[in-house]
Amino acid sequence: MAGAVTLARALRDPTALRLDTDWTGLITAARAEQLVGSLAWRLHGLPVPEPVAILLAEARDGAEAARRTALWEAEMARRALAPLGLPVVLLKGTAYVAAGLAAGQGRHIGDLDVLVPRDGLDAVEQALIAAGWEWVKPDPYDDAYYRRWMHELPPLIHRERDRMIDVHHTILPLTARRRPDPDALIAAARPLGNGLAVLSPSDMICHAAAHLFADGDLAGGLRNLWDIHCLVEEFGVDGLEARARHHGLGDPVRRACRHARALFGTAMPQGWGKDDALDRLIRRRLLARDGWGRPTRPVTRFAFYVRSHALRMPPAMLVRHLWIKARRRPASS
Protein backbone atom coordinates (compact mmCIF):
# COMPACT_ATOMS: atom_id res chain seq x y z
CA MET A 1 0.00 0.00 0.00
CA ALA A 2 1.74 3.15 -1.24
CA GLY A 3 2.06 6.03 1.22
CA ALA A 4 4.69 8.60 2.15
CA VAL A 5 7.48 6.02 1.74
CA THR A 6 6.51 5.41 -1.90
CA LEU A 7 6.05 9.16 -2.39
CA ALA A 8 9.61 9.84 -1.22
CA ARG A 9 10.91 7.07 -3.50
CA ALA A 10 8.92 8.41 -6.46
CA LEU A 11 10.29 11.91 -5.95
CA ARG A 12 13.81 10.55 -5.52
CA ASP A 13 13.80 8.39 -8.67
CA PRO A 14 10.58 8.56 -10.70
CA THR A 15 11.99 6.25 -13.40
CA ALA A 16 12.10 3.42 -10.85
CA LEU A 17 8.28 3.39 -10.56
CA ARG A 18 6.80 0.26 -12.12
CA LEU A 19 3.52 0.36 -14.04
CA ASP A 20 1.85 -1.75 -11.35
CA THR A 21 2.57 0.89 -8.69
CA ASP A 22 -0.37 1.68 -6.40
CA TRP A 23 -0.92 4.98 -8.22
CA THR A 24 -4.02 5.88 -6.22
CA GLY A 25 -2.15 5.56 -2.92
CA LEU A 26 0.80 7.52 -4.32
CA ILE A 27 -1.36 10.42 -5.55
CA THR A 28 -3.45 10.45 -2.37
CA ALA A 29 -0.34 10.62 -0.17
CA ALA A 30 1.15 13.31 -2.44
CA ARG A 31 -2.00 15.45 -2.14
CA ALA A 32 -2.07 14.99 1.64
CA GLU A 33 1.59 16.11 1.88
CA GLN A 34 0.90 19.00 -0.57
CA LEU A 35 3.52 17.56 -2.95
CA VAL A 36 1.27 16.46 -5.83
CA GLY A 37 2.39 19.35 -8.05
CA SER A 38 6.06 18.55 -7.49
CA LEU A 39 5.38 14.84 -8.09
CA ALA A 40 3.48 15.68 -11.31
CA TRP A 41 6.52 17.56 -12.66
CA ARG A 42 8.92 14.80 -11.59
CA LEU A 43 6.81 12.24 -13.53
CA HIS A 44 6.26 14.51 -16.55
CA GLY A 45 7.04 12.64 -19.75
CA LEU A 46 7.42 9.23 -18.10
CA PRO A 47 5.17 6.31 -19.10
CA VAL A 48 2.22 6.17 -16.67
CA PRO A 49 -1.29 4.73 -17.08
CA GLU A 50 -3.64 7.10 -18.93
CA PRO A 51 -5.91 8.01 -15.97
CA VAL A 52 -2.81 8.76 -13.88
CA ALA A 53 -1.49 11.02 -16.64
CA ILE A 54 -4.79 12.96 -16.56
CA LEU A 55 -4.58 13.48 -12.79
CA LEU A 56 -0.94 14.56 -12.98
CA ALA A 57 -1.69 17.00 -15.80
CA GLU A 58 -4.47 18.47 -13.63
CA ALA A 59 -2.00 18.79 -10.75
CA ARG A 60 0.48 20.69 -12.96
CA ASP A 61 -2.37 22.92 -14.14
CA GLY A 62 -3.36 23.63 -10.54
CA ALA A 63 0.23 24.38 -9.57
CA GLU A 64 0.51 26.86 -12.46
CA ALA A 65 -2.59 28.69 -11.23
CA ALA A 66 -1.12 28.76 -7.70
CA ARG A 67 2.16 30.13 -9.09
CA ARG A 68 0.40 33.01 -10.89
CA THR A 69 -1.69 33.87 -7.82
CA ALA A 70 1.42 33.86 -5.60
CA LEU A 71 3.42 36.08 -7.97
CA TRP A 72 0.49 38.51 -8.24
CA GLU A 73 0.17 38.72 -4.48
CA ALA A 74 3.91 39.49 -4.27
CA GLU A 75 3.47 42.16 -6.97
CA MET A 76 0.60 43.82 -5.11
CA ALA A 77 2.63 43.82 -1.88
CA ARG A 78 5.56 45.35 -3.80
CA ARG A 79 3.31 48.14 -5.12
CA ALA A 80 2.00 48.85 -1.62
CA LEU A 81 5.47 48.91 -0.03
CA ALA A 82 7.55 50.48 -2.83
CA PRO A 83 7.05 54.08 -1.58
CA LEU A 84 8.68 53.13 1.77
CA GLY A 85 12.00 52.37 0.04
CA LEU A 86 12.56 49.44 2.42
CA PRO A 87 14.09 46.12 1.34
CA VAL A 88 11.28 43.53 0.92
CA VAL A 89 12.59 39.94 0.85
CA LEU A 90 10.30 37.13 -0.34
CA LEU A 91 10.46 33.89 1.68
CA LYS A 92 9.55 30.21 1.20
CA GLY A 93 7.32 29.11 -1.73
CA THR A 94 6.71 32.56 -3.26
CA ALA A 95 10.48 33.17 -3.29
CA TYR A 96 11.19 29.88 -5.08
CA VAL A 97 8.69 30.62 -7.87
CA ALA A 98 9.65 34.32 -8.10
CA ALA A 99 13.30 33.33 -8.58
CA GLY A 100 12.35 30.51 -10.99
CA LEU A 101 14.05 27.83 -8.88
CA ALA A 102 13.58 24.08 -9.25
CA ALA A 103 12.13 24.07 -5.73
CA GLY A 104 9.27 26.20 -7.05
CA GLN A 105 8.24 23.87 -9.87
CA GLY A 106 4.78 22.49 -9.14
CA ARG A 107 5.02 23.70 -5.58
CA HIS A 108 1.90 24.22 -3.47
CA ILE A 109 2.05 27.84 -2.27
CA GLY A 110 0.23 29.08 0.83
CA ASP A 111 0.34 32.59 2.22
CA LEU A 112 2.80 35.28 1.12
CA ASP A 113 5.75 35.52 3.54
CA VAL A 114 8.00 38.57 3.42
CA LEU A 115 10.97 39.67 5.53
CA VAL A 116 11.44 43.37 6.25
CA PRO A 117 13.82 45.26 8.58
CA ARG A 118 12.43 45.29 12.14
CA ASP A 119 12.54 49.08 12.44
CA GLY A 120 10.39 49.35 9.29
CA LEU A 121 7.61 47.16 10.70
CA ASP A 122 5.20 49.95 11.69
CA ALA A 123 5.59 51.73 8.33
CA VAL A 124 4.98 48.42 6.51
CA GLU A 125 1.90 47.74 8.65
CA GLN A 126 0.37 51.14 7.84
CA ALA A 127 1.18 50.88 4.11
CA LEU A 128 -0.45 47.44 3.84
CA ILE A 129 -3.58 48.54 5.71
CA ALA A 130 -3.84 51.63 3.48
CA ALA A 131 -3.60 49.33 0.43
CA GLY A 132 -6.55 47.15 1.46
CA TRP A 133 -5.12 44.50 3.81
CA GLU A 134 -6.95 43.88 7.11
CA TRP A 135 -6.20 41.95 10.28
CA VAL A 136 -7.39 38.34 10.03
CA LYS A 137 -8.52 38.56 13.65
CA PRO A 138 -10.90 41.43 14.49
CA ASP A 139 -8.92 42.71 17.51
CA PRO A 140 -5.24 41.71 17.09
CA TYR A 141 -4.06 44.52 19.40
CA ASP A 142 -4.99 42.58 22.50
CA ASP A 143 -2.42 40.01 21.38
CA ALA A 144 0.44 42.15 22.72
CA TYR A 145 2.26 38.91 23.40
CA TYR A 146 2.01 38.03 19.73
CA ARG A 147 3.52 41.26 18.54
CA ARG A 148 6.18 41.37 21.28
CA TRP A 149 7.54 37.83 21.09
CA MET A 150 6.66 36.49 17.70
CA HIS A 151 8.91 36.96 14.70
CA GLU A 152 6.10 38.41 12.62
CA LEU A 153 3.12 40.73 12.61
CA PRO A 154 -0.25 39.05 13.28
CA PRO A 155 -1.55 37.75 9.90
CA LEU A 156 -3.14 40.26 7.50
CA ILE A 157 -5.63 39.34 4.76
CA HIS A 158 -6.49 41.42 1.68
CA ARG A 159 -10.15 42.39 1.77
CA GLU A 160 -10.65 41.93 -1.98
CA ARG A 161 -8.41 39.01 -2.86
CA ASP A 162 -8.80 37.03 0.41
CA ARG A 163 -5.06 36.24 0.38
CA MET A 164 -2.98 36.36 3.56
CA ILE A 165 0.41 38.01 4.08
CA ASP A 166 2.81 37.31 6.96
CA VAL A 167 5.33 40.10 7.56
CA HIS A 168 8.44 38.79 9.33
CA HIS A 169 11.29 40.79 10.84
CA THR A 170 13.37 37.67 11.46
CA ILE A 171 12.95 34.03 10.55
CA LEU A 172 12.45 32.37 13.96
CA PRO A 173 10.22 33.34 16.90
CA LEU A 174 12.14 35.58 19.28
CA THR A 175 11.34 33.07 21.96
CA ALA A 176 13.25 30.35 20.10
CA ARG A 177 16.63 29.54 21.61
CA ARG A 178 18.39 30.05 18.28
CA ARG A 179 18.89 33.64 17.02
CA PRO A 180 19.45 33.91 13.23
CA ASP A 181 20.91 37.31 12.18
CA PRO A 182 18.15 39.19 10.31
CA ASP A 183 20.41 42.05 9.23
CA ALA A 184 22.77 39.58 7.57
CA LEU A 185 19.80 37.90 5.85
CA ILE A 186 18.65 41.21 4.39
CA ALA A 187 22.17 42.37 3.51
CA ALA A 188 22.89 39.15 1.57
CA ALA A 189 19.48 39.12 -0.13
CA ARG A 190 19.56 39.00 -3.95
CA PRO A 191 17.35 41.54 -5.81
CA LEU A 192 15.10 40.06 -8.50
CA GLY A 193 15.20 43.28 -10.48
CA ASN A 194 11.54 44.15 -9.86
CA GLY A 195 11.89 45.81 -6.45
CA LEU A 196 11.66 42.52 -4.54
CA ALA A 197 14.46 40.27 -3.39
CA VAL A 198 15.02 36.69 -2.24
CA LEU A 199 17.45 35.31 0.33
CA SER A 200 20.88 34.10 -0.80
CA PRO A 201 20.96 30.37 -1.57
CA SER A 202 22.68 29.46 1.71
CA ASP A 203 20.26 31.65 3.69
CA MET A 204 17.32 30.02 1.88
CA ILE A 205 18.55 26.58 2.96
CA CYS A 206 19.17 27.84 6.53
CA HIS A 207 15.66 29.30 6.66
CA ALA A 208 14.06 26.13 5.26
CA ALA A 209 15.93 24.00 7.85
CA ALA A 210 15.08 26.40 10.69
CA HIS A 211 11.41 26.47 9.61
CA LEU A 212 11.37 22.65 9.34
CA PHE A 213 12.67 21.98 12.86
CA ALA A 214 11.80 25.22 14.68
CA ASP A 215 8.13 24.60 14.08
CA GLY A 216 8.50 21.44 16.06
CA ASP A 217 5.47 19.49 14.97
CA LEU A 218 6.91 18.87 11.48
CA ALA A 219 3.59 19.46 9.74
CA GLY A 220 4.37 19.74 6.02
CA GLY A 221 7.86 18.44 6.87
CA LEU A 222 8.20 16.25 3.78
CA ARG A 223 7.46 19.20 1.51
CA ASN A 224 9.95 21.44 3.38
CA LEU A 225 12.55 18.68 3.05
CA TRP A 226 11.87 18.43 -0.68
CA ASP A 227 12.48 22.19 -0.90
CA ILE A 228 15.86 21.69 0.82
CA HIS A 229 16.71 18.83 -1.53
CA CYS A 230 15.94 20.99 -4.60
CA LEU A 231 17.87 23.98 -3.24
CA VAL A 232 20.97 21.89 -2.41
CA GLU A 233 20.83 20.15 -5.80
CA GLU A 234 20.59 23.53 -7.55
CA PHE A 235 23.15 25.54 -5.51
CA GLY A 236 25.42 22.96 -3.82
CA VAL A 237 26.62 23.38 -0.25
CA ASP A 238 29.73 25.51 -0.40
CA GLY A 239 29.51 28.26 2.20
CA LEU A 240 26.40 26.64 3.70
CA GLU A 241 28.04 25.27 6.84
CA ALA A 242 29.79 28.59 7.62
CA ARG A 243 26.55 30.52 7.03
CA ALA A 244 24.56 28.10 9.21
CA ARG A 245 27.08 28.57 12.03
CA HIS A 246 26.77 32.35 11.66
CA HIS A 247 23.03 32.07 12.22
CA GLY A 248 23.44 29.54 15.02
CA LEU A 249 21.61 27.03 12.83
CA GLY A 250 24.45 24.53 12.34
CA ASP A 251 22.57 21.64 13.94
CA PRO A 252 19.19 22.10 12.17
CA VAL A 253 20.91 22.54 8.78
CA ARG A 254 23.09 19.42 9.19
CA ARG A 255 20.07 17.49 10.48
CA ALA A 256 17.91 18.64 7.55
CA CYS A 257 20.61 17.69 5.03
CA ARG A 258 20.99 14.24 6.60
CA HIS A 259 17.24 13.63 6.19
CA ALA A 260 17.20 15.00 2.62
CA ARG A 261 20.08 12.68 1.72
CA ALA A 262 18.41 9.69 3.42
CA LEU A 263 14.99 10.26 1.76
CA PHE A 264 15.80 11.93 -1.54
CA GLY A 265 19.45 10.99 -2.09
CA THR A 266 20.62 14.62 -2.02
CA ALA A 267 24.28 14.83 -3.06
CA MET A 268 26.28 16.36 -0.20
CA PRO A 269 29.56 15.83 1.67
CA GLN A 270 29.55 12.70 3.82
CA GLY A 271 30.81 14.30 6.99
CA TRP A 272 27.52 15.82 8.08
CA GLY A 273 27.08 13.62 11.13
CA LYS A 274 25.30 10.31 11.70
CA ASP A 275 21.65 9.87 12.54
CA ASP A 276 20.95 10.25 16.27
CA ALA A 277 17.93 9.05 18.23
CA LEU A 278 16.00 12.22 17.39
CA ASP A 279 16.64 11.67 13.67
CA ARG A 280 15.04 8.23 13.81
CA LEU A 281 11.99 9.74 15.49
CA ILE A 282 11.90 12.59 12.95
CA ARG A 283 11.97 10.15 10.03
CA ARG A 284 9.10 8.17 11.59
CA ARG A 285 7.13 11.42 11.81
CA LEU A 286 8.01 12.61 8.27
CA LEU A 287 6.78 9.33 6.74
CA ALA A 288 3.69 8.95 8.96
CA ARG A 289 1.14 8.98 6.07
CA ASP A 290 -0.63 5.96 4.52
CA GLY A 291 -2.01 5.36 1.03
CA TRP A 292 -5.45 6.56 2.11
CA GLY A 293 -3.92 9.93 2.98
CA ARG A 294 -4.43 9.26 6.69
CA PRO A 295 -1.92 10.56 9.24
CA THR A 296 -0.45 7.47 10.98
CA ARG A 297 1.73 6.91 14.10
CA PRO A 298 -0.45 9.06 16.40
CA VAL A 299 1.91 8.79 19.38
CA THR A 300 4.90 10.08 17.38
CA ARG A 301 2.74 12.84 15.90
CA PHE A 302 1.43 13.92 19.32
CA ALA A 303 4.95 13.94 20.77
CA PHE A 304 6.06 16.42 18.09
CA TYR A 305 2.88 18.45 18.55
CA VAL A 306 3.63 18.93 22.27
CA ARG A 307 7.31 19.59 21.44
CA SER A 308 6.29 22.39 19.07
CA HIS A 309 4.50 24.25 21.87
CA ALA A 310 7.48 23.80 24.17
CA LEU A 311 9.90 25.05 21.47
CA ARG A 312 7.80 28.05 20.72
CA MET A 313 7.73 29.24 24.31
CA PRO A 314 10.70 28.24 26.48
CA PRO A 315 9.58 27.43 30.09
CA ALA A 316 11.03 30.61 31.67
CA MET A 317 9.23 32.76 29.12
CA LEU A 318 6.02 30.79 29.55
CA VAL A 319 5.93 31.35 33.30
CA ARG A 320 6.67 35.06 32.99
CA HIS A 321 4.03 35.48 30.29
CA LEU A 322 1.35 33.78 32.37
CA TRP A 323 2.33 35.77 35.47
CA ILE A 324 1.90 39.10 33.64
CA LYS A 325 -1.49 38.08 32.29
CA ALA A 326 -2.69 36.81 35.66
CA ARG A 327 -1.69 39.96 37.56
CA ARG A 328 -3.38 42.38 35.18
CA ARG A 329 -7.08 42.93 36.07
CA PRO A 330 -8.92 41.26 33.11
CA ALA A 331 -10.39 44.12 31.04
CA SER A 332 -14.15 43.58 30.62
CA SER A 333 -13.88 42.30 27.07
Binding site: W23, L55, W292
Partner: peptide
Protein backbone atom coordinates in the same frame (compact mmCIF):
# COMPACT_ATOMS: atom_id res chain seq x y z
CA UNK B 1 -16.52 1.07 -11.16
CA UNK B 2 -13.75 3.55 -12.07
CA UNK B 3 -10.54 2.28 -13.67
CA UNK B 4 -8.68 4.58 -11.25
CA UNK B 5 -10.50 6.82 -8.72
CA UNK B 6 -9.93 10.58 -9.11
CA UNK B 7 -10.66 11.33 -5.46
CA UNK B 8 -10.59 9.70 -2.02
CA UNK B 9 -13.23 10.23 0.67
CA UNK B 10 -12.78 8.93 4.21
Amino acid sequence: RPELPDYTVR
